[in-house]
Simulated assay, not measured.
Amino acid sequence: MSTGKEQLDVEDDFVAVESDENAQLPAESAKTNLSKRRTIDNLLEERRLQKQLADYDFDL
């Protein structure tokens, strides 16, 4: 643990530069994640419906 008496080196000249490639990355990532989420949701829905169909009593 720190005692609070230690001297920390701090760089004051740090400048965050965002390039065009990095600016596009989060939007594409979010779009891909949404697409994957929809695919997973569809598969889970299909599995749920298959289970309901298997549990359905056809001998009414």
Rank of each mutant, 00 (worst) to 15 (best):
G4C: 01
R38E: 11
L44R: 14
K31P: 05
E11P: 02
D20M: 09
E18C: 00
Q7I: 01
S19F: 14
L43N: 08
D59T: 10
D9Q: 02
E28P: 09
N42H: 11
S2R: 09
R38M: 06
Q24M: 06
S35W: 06
M1T: 03
D59F: 08
S2Y: 13
L44P: 03
N22P: 01
S35A: 12
D20A: 13
G4S: 00
R48F: 13
N42W: 11
L34S: 07
T39D: 09
K51H: 07
A30H: 02
S35L: 13
F14A: 14
K5M: 01
A54V: 05
T32C: 02
D41G: 12
R37D: 05
E18R: 07
Q24C: 03
N22Y: 08
S29Y: 11
S29R: 10
N33T: 15
L25C: 02
A27C: 01
S19A: 06
L53A: 14
E28K: 10
R38D: 15
S29P: 00
T39S: 10
L8V: 07
K5F: 05
R37G: 02
L43I: 05
E6M: 02
L25P: 02
D20L: 09
T39N: 12
T32L: 15
Q50F: 08
L8D: 05
D59N: 10
E45V: 05
I40K: 15
A30V: 15
L60R: 10
F14V: 15
S35M: 09
K5I: 03
A16V: 11
V10M: 05
D9N: 03
L44S: 13
N33Y: 12
E45D: 06
T3Q: 03
E21P: 02
R38G: 04
A23G: 00
N33I: 15
D13C: 00
A30P: 04
D20P: 05
L8R: 10
F14N: 08
I40E: 15
D12T: 13
K51P: 02
N42S: 09
E28R: 15
M1S: 14
Q52F: 09
K5V: 01
